[in-house]
Amino acid sequence: MTTIASTNKNSGRLLRSGSAIVAVTESGQHLLKIDGYSHTKDVPTGSDIKSRPFRVGGHNWRISYYPNGLSSAWSGYISIFLQLTNDVPDGVRTQHTFSLLDREGKPVPYFINAGKRIFTGWGTSAFISRDELERSAHLQDDCFTIRCDITVMKEIQTKSIDLGKAVEVPPSDLHGHLGGLLEAGEGADVMFEVDGKTFMAHRCVLMARSPVLHAELSGLTTEESAAAAHGSVAVVRIEDMEAQDFEALLRYIYTDSLPDMKDEGGDAAAMLPDLVAAANRYQMERLRLLCEDKLCQFVNVRTVAIILAFAAEHHCQGLKEACFQFLSDTENLREVFKINGLEHLRESCPSVLEELIAKLTAAP
């Protein structure tokens, strides 16, 4: 990076400018699933099956899969090549990796790394021997998956850079101040009784954050409002909610954030469905979507049916689609059936089960 500074003799003000030399790259990933491996072995040696086209770095690519090798010298191997399908006279500089994936989608030690200027194609004639693949646990139900990671090196560019403003404005700390106000309870004018515990809060903050709370707190009796105006605290009782859930709800109202969810499977994660219900109850759409997004992380073969039923009951469309997408994978669906996971759906939400079956039968 080159920086130039000069002084304007008339004003004495330092003029600052800067530029950066940037090596621009773009990365992408393509999964090639071989479904029906044994049937691809009928393809003659030297013949390939091409993937669908995909685009990375402004160029079009395909993966060429040779189930019986690139030539007779490699007939006992699977050959794999990355093909550039658009004409580039000077070629394309890339770094790319082919990886065989295990059942969990993680790469295993059968790969080739390459850093080449590709004109037409580049890969390996001996990606993995067929005997080794067929003996491995990575060939499941006559299927396996190859992942291609590709980084395209584009032209080196020179750009102007911002050397910073004279005044640096720090990020907003409103949430920190409001969170501190909640913890200190200073100026609180409403007390909530929830599940045997009490919580102090500020009516103006609550009314600004939830239309339901706005209506409820605006509807306090004349005596309660007059008492609050003279420094007394209005008391509101909340039914059908646990204290820890209401505490998390208050924390979100003041700070726009949820409790730490790092303890996956613990109390914080178990709180998410209750917070979705609270968000619906108090018409707080962003809170509902935030919890919905985090619940998507907990979808697995043991939880998908329960989460799908919950999503349908609480109108969580994004969460429902995430469950449908999970179950569209044949292997996942098979595992769910093994543990009788869809029985819960049949009993609690038959309409959702019907929708799932319709989606799976309509899939190509």
Rank of each mutant, 00 (worst) to 15 (best):
M1Y: 03
T7C: 13
R13N: 08
G18Q: 05
A20S: 06
T25F: 00
L31W: 07
D35C: 14
G36K: 03
H39W: 02
K41L: 15
K41G: 09
V43D: 11
R52K: 15
P53V: 09
H59V: 05
G69Q: 06
S71A: 13
S72C: 07
D87P: 00
P89S: 00
R93K: 05
T94R: 03
Q95S: 12
H96I: 04
L100Q: 02
L100S: 10
D102I: 08
K106N: 10
K106M: 12
K106Y: 06
P109H: 10
G115I: 10
R117F: 00
F119A: 01
G123H: 04
T124E: 08
I128K: 10
S129R: 05
E132K: 10
T145M: 05
E155R: 03
Q157L: 09
T158I: 13
D162L: 04
V167I: 12
V169T: 13
H175S: 14
H177C: 10
G180I: 01
E183S: 12
E183T: 13
E183F: 02
G185I: 02
V190E: 06
S210T: 07
L220C: 01
T221W: 04
E224C: 01
S225A: 05
S225T: 07
I238M: 15
A243Q: 09
L258V: 07
P259I: 13
K262V: 11
A268S: 12
V276F: 03
V276S: 02
V276E: 08
N280W: 00
K294T: 11
L295E: 11
C296A: 15
F298H: 15
C323Y: 08
Q325E: 13
L327E: 12
N332I: 07
L333R: 14
L342F: 14
E354Q: 15
L356C: 06
A358T: 14
